[in-house]
Amino acid sequence: MNNIGFLAYLRRDLLLAYRRRGEAASPLMFFLLVSTLIPLGVGPDSARLAELAPGIIWVMALLATLLSTEGLFAADHQDGTLEQMLISPQLVVMPVLGKVAAHWLVTGLPLTMVSPLIGLMLSLPEIAIVPMMISLAVGTACLSLVGAVGAALTVSLRKGGLLLSIVVIPLYTPVIIFGSATVQTAIDGINWLPPLAVLLAMLCAAIALCPLAIAGALRLVNSN
């Protein structure tokens, strides 16, 4: 199995994230803070909050992931690790996949873990908690992969952050549609597996295709 690059970069990025715990926790803080702003803006009426909850949670999760994607390759670009990775004889795809997996473990997974708390605060019906968590886990992985394409394209730019969001948000739309639909159908008491299945299909496609685009972007755009 040629997954050595995968494991090495996964371990390295997790270790780096562990050493900079404060930085790694900031998307999570963002998710929590902004979600508490919503009731302040919309009003404390729990019926209305429950109605908006699936959409709010998904949009917030999307923004939190987007915030953290910007730094996905930035540090590696600055200290030359990226160049090392690109000139190494092995396929760039595996290390890239390792980095994205680490990114998901550091942002998407914690978001999924705290989402029941937000669901509780926004009075999301209890039957929707499990579908929400599963859809968030699958969906944030998609977001990490797609976001990494944008991050790879903009890594050599000084003000890449804003550009990254312009580039990536349109590509996020299918994920948010099926993600929030999973939660919504669960609330409505309908079978919520079909939208989740579509989300899973998207994840499979993203795992297959995104690393190629990321590797291409890193190699072509940043080599000169």
């Binding site: 394409v149 903009t154 050599s156 580039v167 685009a213 291409g216 972007a217 072509l220 755009v221 000169n224």
Partner: peptide
């Protein structure tokens, strides 16, 4: 060149 390639990939 970098701009063109980035645009093409996107």
């Amino acid at each position: 060149e970098a701009g063109s390639k980035a645009g093409a990939i996107l």
